[in-house]
Write a protein that binds this DNA or RNA. Structure first.
Lengths: 186, 186
DNA sequence: ACCGACACGTGAGCC
DNA sequence: TGGCTCACGTGTCGG
């Protein structure tokens, strides 16, 4: 029932539109190393590399719809706007979410499992460890500072430390988010 | 399954088993505040509260299956083992993943959107900021240490920081991972 | 042969 | 009102 009515009309070939299509094709044509982490890496590079250095859109996907609407001259568009738009939005949602997953996995240092669940698991643990480490460092820093300078002349805990630490920008979206937020509340 | 065990034999009523069932039911019977973040909060408390103070398992879920298998006296079990087991496993997978999502959201300090995607987005940004902050603290710490005490007396990096941080067990697998791993590689 | 993982489409609900 | 997110079941691929 999944593949029934006048649907999005990606080629004649029935269901499994788009994603699985090129996955399979790339799996067969290029026959890249399909042993471990097989199609994940492939999908990763094929999916992110075009996004990296190209700002142009791929908006033809919503346009190809009317073409099939002309060919598929059903009486109205009851399932068109109600479904074809829906399935597309849903696909976009999944896509966005997967992108976040990949991006998140690239941050966590030691991950070997690509399991969508292990990614979350490792992240949730990594954040905990980072958090604890920050508290540790902060406490030691303050303690050391206090022991070094027992003179309470002033206590400016934000003197920018006058060190030449390089704050590399996060780069991507460049949104100037407020720095020094309340971190590690647990 | 969160609410109660031995109930996988969802009633006679066809699809939409379990989750949507009690969601709708709770929506109608209890008619709790269904205005903002409506069923999310409800599901959250109903799902996590039993898990908080109860260590007992709920492994009866694979057992209740035979009951309905008896009622469903088809000739063999072609769709039973091929489907009923599969759908159950899939549901368990989603459930585990959702649990991770909730647990992850509880770590990030400032989140207002409950969007499954915003959770990831905020987390991925939070990790970045934590990471940068660790580098910052570390650099300052080292620099201060070098300028303060050129004499290498000793540096016990495990002074327990004298804070009352309570290490709640993660419970599930409890793998005692090695501390002081390589953090913040970026 | 089974089990785990994932993408997909689809029904439902909430702004 | 449609857009948007979510949960679900299902088909399919890999170990």
């Amino acid at each position: 029932m999944a593949a029934e009515p006048s649907f999005i009309a990606y080629e004649a070939h029935s269901h499994q539109s788009a994603f699985s299509r090129w996955t399979i094709r790339s799996d067969h044509l290029f026959h890249v190393s399909a042993d471990t982490t097989s199609q994940w890496l492939l999908k990763y590079v094929l999916f992110t590399v075009p996004h990296l250095h190209s700002k142009n859109r791929e908006e033809n996907s919503p346009k190809s719809r009317d073409g099939e609407a002309a060919s598929r001259f059903r009486k109205g568009t009851p399932q068109d706007e109600l479904s074809a738009n829906h399935v597309l939005a849903e696909r976009r949602r999944r896509e966005k979410l997967n992108e976040r997953f990949i991006m998140l996995r690239s941050l966590v240092p030691f991950v070997t499992k690509m399991d969508k669940a292990s990614i979350l698991g490792d992240t949730i643990e990594y954040v905990k460890q980072l958090c604890q480490k920050i508290q540790d460092l902060e406490a030691r820093n303050k303690q050391m500072e206090s022991e070094q300078r027992p003179r309470p002349v002033d206590r400016p805990q934000r003197t920018t430390t006058s060190d030449g630490l390089k704050k590399q920008k996060s780069g991507s979206h460049g949104g100037g988010s407020g720095e020094e937020f309340r971190a590690c509340v647990r």
